[in-house]
Structure formats: C-alpha cells, structure tokens
Write a protein that binds this DNA or RNA. Structure first.
Lengths: 211, 211
DNA sequence: GTGTGCATGTAATGAGTTACATGATTAC
DNA sequence: GTAATCATGTAACTCATTACATGCACAC
C-alpha cells in the first residue's frame, strides 16, 4: 500500500557531478570527464556514455548553455542560473548509499577456500594501493595551494582529501595487522594445490614483501 | 585490434557470493539473501532478483544441487564438488574495483554551494553511521566466538571485521576533524538559510537533538 | 479462517560501462 | 602528410534493483 510516495526520479547523480564541475569552470564534455577523473577520481567516476546524454538533458532543461556551435566543433558548456539552483537542490537531497560491493572483503571472507598465501597477496596489494593513494592526496594538497582561483572551494575540497587520507591510513594499519595475523595460517586447514607453495612471495610490485 | 582477449564473462560476482555462502552451509534462496545481508552486509549485498537466477544458472552448470523438490516447496541448495572448485577459481580472479560513487564526498566537495551548516549535518550523520557500524562489528565479533562450527573460517572472517573497525574509526576521527574545520566557516561566502546556525557543537553520540 | 512470515520467481526498469564510429585539430 | 590527441555521440549490453504475483505453513 505504499504506492503514494514513489521516488519517481532516481536522483540523477551524474547531473549533480556535471553541474558541480561546471559550477567551478565552463568546460567541454571531454574536459568534464577528465576533470571528474582527475579531481573527483577518488570518490566519483563518470563515463562518456553518461556525460553526453546528461549534458544534452541539462541543456534541454536550460540548466547549462552551449557556447560553441552545436556540432561544428568543440562546444564549451556553461552553467546557467537555473543550473546553479538546480545544483543546490540536488546537493541538498539525502545521500543514497550505493549498495556495497567490496571484492577484496568478499575474497578474504572466504579466504579459507582461497588459501592464506593468496590472501596475503591480496592484502599486500591493498596496502600498496593505499600508499599510492596517500601519496596522491599529498600531491593534490600542494597543488591546491598554488591555485588562487576558486579558493573559496578549498576548505571543502580539503575535507574530501582529508577523508581520503584517513581512509588510506586506516587501510595501511589494517593491512599490517592482517598480514601479521595471516602469517601463521600458512598451510594447515588447506589441501591446496601444492604448486601454490611457491607463491608465498607473490611479488605484486616487488613490494618489499616478507614471505 | 584487441579483439582476441575479450573478458567475455563479466565475472559474475553474485555467483561468487552465493557459492561462498553455500560453501559454509546448505540454504534456501531466501536464507541466502538473509545470510548475505546479515553476515556480509558490511561489504556486500544481493537482491532476490539476482539470487534466484544465479541459483538456477549454477544448478544448470552442476555447481549446486537442489535438495527439495523442484517447485513443490522450499528447496535447499547444496554446493557440489564442481561448485567448490568453481568457487576457488572465482575467488582467485583479480579483484575488479567497482567505480567509486561516494555521495557524501560529492556533496562536501561542492560544499560551498550547499552551505556549511548542511555540510556539518552530513558529516555528523556520517559519524553516527560509523559509530553504529563499530558497535555492530563488536557484536559480530562476540557472536563469532560462540560458534563452534565453521571455526576454520574465523581468522578470515575476523579480517573483514577488523577492516570494518579500522574504517569506522577512521571515519569518526575524520568527522571530528572535519566538524572542527567546518565550525568557523559559518556564514561567510554563503547566503544560506539562517536556520542552520545553531548546530556548531558536534555532539554526535546521543545525536538525537538539534533539529 | 486469517494474518504473518517463509519462499520462489518474473517483469519492468534503469543506471552505467564498453565498444564502436566519426571527425577536427595540433604536433612532428 | 600522418599520428596523436581532443572531441562527440550512439548502440549494445550487463548488472542490479524494485515491484509484482503467487503460494504454503503455521500460529492465533
């Protein structure tokens, strides 16, 4: 009987990201993808297949304006006043959490089937990823300080960077602990294919591994 | 030119989760959903619409066996030997990271458009979520110790619990820092609705109040 | 006998990726 | 001139959710 309050519009999140990016600076669709990948990449992603239709829809609704000619060449998009207020509207909508799908955790959960050495390799990989991310966050931090323009956004952007750093550091600490706990689990409770014995040192990235 | 190595099967991750759950104990489809929600819920989710077709496909391929009659009543599914080896195969496949889509970070990134008070509310919500998760992890930890069966899985399961704890603690620490940084940003550069002004004090636990 | 929970499935829907097709501009 | 990069868009396909339809079992 809950037919009355259907959330009809599924809150086109792509539009939010696109309008948000255009609120910082006008861009082409191509540049939008790059900006989203490079700047929001830690927590957001969009593909061309989403961006172009979304831009077309936003143009139709008057939320963005096309500066170049329609098909002749690259057209830069600019957010309109109506687009800005639409953006604020969308940002104010409640966060709808994406259903979780963490492949690493799934594998570790059934780690007994996978075997301890493979699990260690996965954890080591995750640790390396986290370290890479941490390094990138610092680079972005410094890059931010160079930019005079859009300085009003800085405090908010730094919030997201900081979240990334906290997450990355937590991942590293967890990985170290996990590796210590996985170490003694070597070969008991597993009748694994014996050929797996030599991958105790998987060498994911010559990652200075233990083994 | 790259026509040769198309990863044709998109690594049906649902099948991995289903086989994994059945590797612990035989279950009905209904129970599978519940088990996945209750046990893997922090990092995985499946809906009926996925589970039943997946079970049918796995049965067709001989990876699971139906114990009850086909349509008469509840049928319990059991993993077969071929299913077990298929599971190991799938677990060994590289983790394919899901494209990130973090609605909270998206909103904070464009926080200037949203306004500092609304951002603080979001961060407080996130902090409360993290605290709730942390509490649940401890409950699961204790519950695990009661179970004698499937004790061989425990070290691996604890790894995922620990990851959740690290993540949750990092989220809480980040939130506290973020709230401190957001406090002074009150009303400049924003012509926000004035009603958000009274939420300067974080106070998340006992998060009840302050409409 | 009726409501609640267990159980199974299908259909509609939609979000989003990948691959493809195409062309303009710029650098060498 | 030609290769790489910028740029735009569409089509096919996959994955997954939501809603719907159905029915049994059991408690009350």
């Amino acid at each position: 009987m809950q037919t009355q309050t259907k959330p009809r519009v599924r809150a086109n999140q792509t539009a939010t990201a696109v309008l948000g990016a255009l609120s910082v600076a006008p861009m082409t669709g191509y540049a939008l993808r790059e900006a989203i990948r490079d700047v929001l990449g830690h927590f957001w992603s969009e593909s061309f297949g989403q961006i172009y239709p979304t831009l077309a829809a936003l143009e139709r609704d008057g939320h963005v304006r096309r500066l170049g000619a329609v098909r002749t060449r690259a057209s830069t998009f600019e957010i309109t006043a109506s687009g800005t207020s639409r953006l604020k509207e969308m940002l104010a909508q409640p966060v709808q959490p994406a259903p979780p799908r963490n492949g690493l955790m799934l594998r570790l959960f059934f780690g007994r089937q996978l075997g301890a050495p493979a699990c260690r390799a996965l954890v080591r990989e995750a640790r390396a990823d986290a370290e890479r991310n941490l390094a990138r966050y610092q680079a972005i931090r410094m890059q931010l300080l160079d930019e005079e323009d859009s300085a009003g956004d800085h405090p908010y952007v730094l919030l997201t960077i900081s979240a990334g750093e906290h997450t990355a550091r937590a991942a590293i600490a967890w990985a170290d602990q996990a590796l210590a706990e996985l170490a003694p689990l070597d070969s008991h409770d597993e009748e694994t294919h014996r050929q797996g014995a030599n991958d105790a040192a998987p060498q994911t990235s010559n990652a200075t591994e233990e083994a």
